[in-house]
């Protein structure tokens, strides 16, 4: 009876893919970070699904670590956005093309 797994994994991959699309088409840096959070959530779902299939708490614990990674990234990312906003008045990534070539 693996239907729970296939369902969960498909959901996980779908959310992950939506996250990728979000990353690639959004303009606002915060929205892009949210897309990344979506991707991390999708990965969590995959972890939990696998953990459930092994009936092991390891997978559960791994999820905790992934959540913490997401937290730390969010904190640093948002700080960088604030800094950029202060110096440029926008966090539109489309306008961040000083460095190129």
């Amino acid at each position: 009876m693996t239907s729970y797994m296939i369902n969960n994994l498909v959901l996980s991959l779908a959310i992950f893919s939506i996250g990728i699309i979000g990353f690639l088409v959004k303009r606002n840096a915060i929205a892009i970070l949210m897309a990344i959070e979506l991707m991390l959530n999708a990965a969590n779902l995959a972890f939990v699904t696998f953990a459930y299939s092994f009936a092991s708490v390891d997978g559960t614990i791994l999820v905790l670590f992934v959540i913490t990674v997401a937290t730390a990234e969010a904190a640093v990312g948002l700080a960088i956005f604030i800094r950029i906003y202060r110096s440029r008045g926008t966090i539109d990534v489309d306008k961040m093309t000083t460095l190129h070539g």
Binding site: T68, V69, T71, A72, E73, A75, V76, L78, A79, I80, I82, R83
Partner: peptide, 13 residues
Amino acid sequence: LLVIAIIGAAMIA
């Protein structure tokens, strides 16, 4: 990791 995030976020922002 969290300590780094805190230090960094505080300093950059």
